[in-house]
Simulated assay, not measured.
Amino acid sequence: MKIVVVGGTGLIGSQVVALLRDRGHEAVVASPSKGVDTLTGEGLAQAFKGADVVVDVSNSPSFDAEPALDFFTRSAQNMFRAEEEAGVRHHVALSIVGVDQVPDYGYYQAKVAQEEAVRGSGVPYSIVRATQFFEFIAPVMDMSTEGTEVRLPSLRLRPIASADVAAAVAEAAQSEPSNGVRNIAGPEVHGLDRLGEITLAAKPDGRTVVTDETAGLFAGMPDVLTGDDTVDVASTRYEDWLKQH
């Protein structure tokens, strides 16, 4: 199959492309560096020509509400217009576990709008919702560092390796459209502050974790980001992943 991966140069997309090519598919990278701009529509018609499946793992360059909403909705409109013209028969989108239960966080609401666009597009689809990536923990810690203290709330997360997310997205791309949502998560639930402690125990750098419910990107978030008992659980543990990265 010809499978176009929008955002195919990013953390998830590059791994999806590699997995699909290993399975013998024609995986085409669509990104601004390849002359494809979903915001303007430039290059979409050519990239999607002859495609069976489009995988969207692109991300907004901003986490702020208005630019994120503009990115996801405008990109979706341009992609679905091009997909209809090209006869694409399956659209796979990557989203976030619990995304529709966080009404006060603008970036999550932008992702909800993206999901709504997918459902209303008329193109058969599959949505993969994942929890936060292991690779995201260290940057969150850096953003919350004050001197030698890493100030983090105790919000529960169930993080997952990006490789496991890429595998689920690639699997969806090779399967029939589900016209529904699959939730995936890592095997363990930890408070974000505890994840910080685990990280610094494995890679000490002189910082210590201070629990602060008002600090950082996840301050005030509702406890909905771990998923429920129906999530598909990946096998990679965070501590094991840290030893290899």
Rank of each mutant, 00 (worst) to 15 (best):
I3E: 04
V4E: 03
V5N: 05
V6P: 03
G7N: 01
G8A: 14
T9I: 11
T9N: 13
G10D: 08
G10P: 03
L11K: 04
S14Y: 02
G24K: 02
V29C: 11
G35D: 09
T38S: 14
T40K: 06
T40G: 09
E42C: 11
G43K: 02
L44W: 05
L44E: 03
A45I: 06
V54C: 05
F63N: 11
A65S: 13
R74Q: 13
R89P: 05
L94F: 00
V97K: 07
G98V: 03
D104E: 14
Y108H: 14
V112E: 00
A113Y: 01
V118Y: 01
G122K: 04
P124D: 11
I127A: 05
I127L: 11
I127P: 01
E135S: 15
F136L: 15
I137G: 00
A138C: 06
M143K: 04
R151H: 12
S154V: 08
R158L: 10
I160Q: 01
A161P: 08
A163K: 12
D164S: 15
V169W: 02
V169R: 01
E176Y: 09
P177S: 13
V181R: 01
V181T: 11
A185C: 06
G186K: 06
P187H: 08
V189R: 09
V189C: 10
H190F: 15
G191A: 01
D193N: 14
R207G: 02
T208A: 12
E213C: 08
G216F: 08
D223N: 14
L225V: 10
D232F: 07
A234P: 01
A234T: 06
W241A: 09
K243V: 15
K243A: 15
Q244I: 13
